[in-house]
């Protein structure tokens, strides 16, 4: 006979199996490496209560997908295939062209592949939210409870250093005054 559970036990169940929302900053990150980590979170493999049959995956909100960094010559030579279904409808698009058309697609496809070939894949992709820049709808912003750690350090560009920092940085030698720097 199934008895109703007590209030305490119900709250405990909600606490253990609650679905979290993670925020991931994709700036300067390799989309293929990040996709593996994101897929891991979407499947719930970051939890010790993980089981493939129980739906323990979390939501992942990714920002700054327009600033992803592909390695080596991938921008030029990684091609994405598409067929419309009609005759003569096959096309190959390179990564930079796809990125110009839709700035979330490269990461979306990377995560889709990393999710594996199971039937749970579409379920996992429903829980992925991609945004090209910083702007997230307020409803999603309220849900977020933690960050996913980035996989690569974000390099600091010269223009991001303040004048004071540049001035106070230790120099081994100083260029001569009339020396022309290219």
């Amino acid at each position: 006979m199934n008895r109703p559970i007590s209030t305490y036990k119900r709250v405990q169940q909600w606490a253990v199996f609650g679905r979290l929302w993670f925020l991931f900053d994709a700036k300067w990150q390799n989309p293929f490496d990040s996709a593996e980590k994101i897929a891991k979170y979407l499947a719930g493999k970051h939890k010790p209560i993980y089981h493939p049959l129980s739906d323990v995956g979390d939501h992942v909100v990714v920002i700054n997908t327009k600033d992803i960094a592909l390695p080596n010559k991938e921008w030029r030579y990684r091609m994405y295939y598409h067929h419309t279904g009609f005759a003569g409808g096959s096309s190959w698009t390179s990564a930079w062209e796809l990125h110009n058309k839709d700035q979330t697609k490269v990461l979306w496809k990377a995560v889709y592949k990393a999710c594996g070939g199971s039937l749970l894949r579409h379920n996992m992709m429903e829980r992925l939210h991609l945004f090209p820049d910083d702007k997230i709808p307020q409803e999603l912003m309220e849900n977020i409870s933690d960050h996913m750690k980035q996989l690569r350090p974000v390099p600091k560009a010269l223009h991001e250093y303040t004048e004071e920092e540049i001035k106070n940085f230790p120099k081994v030698f100083e260029w001569p005054e009339d020396y022309v720097l290219n």
Binding site: A15, V16, L23, Q150, R152
Partner: peptide, 28 residues
């Protein structure tokens, strides 16, 4: 107490506004 997603998370996350750079940064 059974593990829950917040067992090993620091409690300051309750009062932070996201995105938070320190929490998100890669730690070499």
């Amino acid at each position: 107490g059974i593990w829950n997603p917040f067992t090993h998370k620091p409690s300051y996350l309750n009062v932070t506004t996201f995105p938070e750079k320190e929490r998100s940064e890669y730690q070499p």
